[in-house]
Amino acid sequence: MHIHHISQQNSILNTFISEIRNIDIQKDSMRFRRNIERIGEILAYEISKSLNFKTSSIKTPLGEASINVLENDIVLCSILRAGLPLHNGLLNYFDTAENAFISAYRHHKHNPESIEIIVEYLACPNLENKTLILADSMLATGQSMVATFEALKPFGTPKEVHLISAIGAQEGVKFVEKHFDDNVHLWIAAIDEKLNKKGYIIPGLGDAGDLAFGEKLQQ
């Protein structure tokens, strides 16, 4: 797998990462969502550099212009609910993309340190020979990303696959690297050192879904 750790090169991206981590700034849920969205936009721009383009002739009011335009058939798939702001950022740039959504959540069974990923709701177009961009705001254990990809297999075989996350842990990166093919690309804004015993990223930022949309009741 090809890993693109975007924040290793200084850019305005680092400002957005600092704000989603900041315990005072992240209290503003609207600002948190917007910062995740902006991170998605930057990652979309970085991905676009690796995609396929074709030359097109464009008629202007004063003549014609020849320009290279994107030719990939893109499907954006986000893991609910934390992936929604990231999805919006990607869709702002890949605005003609098709869209898929899937619910994947942690089930701790009887042991809070034992994690099982449950996949329930899934809506997806045909993926055959398309460019699949699979987005989840947090790449913690990596299990959600792998479980989601497995759930998408009945919808066809993508021509290429790109994984997207705002923040991940080394453990999660290693997990997806082990479970995805060598030609898959991971585009990630920041990679943190470790997970705690409950599988949360340290230092991370907390629960991205709760920060974006409010705390949820556990059942």
Rank of each mutant, 00 (worst) to 15 (best):
T15V: 15
T15H: 15
T15E: 13
F16S: 13
E19L: 13
I20N: 04
I20A: 09
R21W: 04
R21K: 09
I23Y: 09
D24P: 01
Q26D: 03
Q26H: 03
K27P: 02
F32S: 10
F32H: 03
R33V: 05
R33Y: 07
N35I: 05
E37N: 15
I39G: 05
I42Y: 13
I42P: 01
L43D: 09
E46T: 12
E46I: 12
K49L: 12
S50H: 12
L51W: 06
F53D: 04
K54H: 02
K54E: 09
I58A: 15
K59F: 00
K59S: 12
T60A: 09
T60H: 06
T60W: 07
T60L: 14
P61I: 12
L62W: 12
L62Q: 14
G63F: 10
I67F: 13
N68F: 12
N68W: 02
N68A: 10
N72C: 01
I74M: 01
L76Y: 07
C77Q: 07
S78V: 08
A82K: 05
G83T: 05
L84S: 00
P85H: 14
P85F: 14
H87I: 09
H87M: 15
G89M: 05
N92R: 14
F94W: 08
D95T: 12
T96G: 06
T96V: 07
A97V: 03
E98V: 00
N99Q: 10
N99V: 11
N99G: 00
A100I: 02
F101V: 01
Y105T: 05
H108K: 15
K109M: 06
K109L: 10
H110I: 08
P112K: 09
S114M: 03
E116D: 11
I117V: 14
I118K: 13
I118S: 04
Y121P: 01
Y121K: 10
N126I: 10
N126A: 11
L127H: 01
E128M: 01
E128T: 03
N129T: 00
K130R: 06
I133Y: 05
L134W: 08
D136I: 11
L139C: 00
L139A: 01
T141P: 00
T141A: 06
G142W: 10
S144T: 13
S144D: 00
A147C: 02
T148I: 11
T148H: 09
F149C: 03
A151F: 13
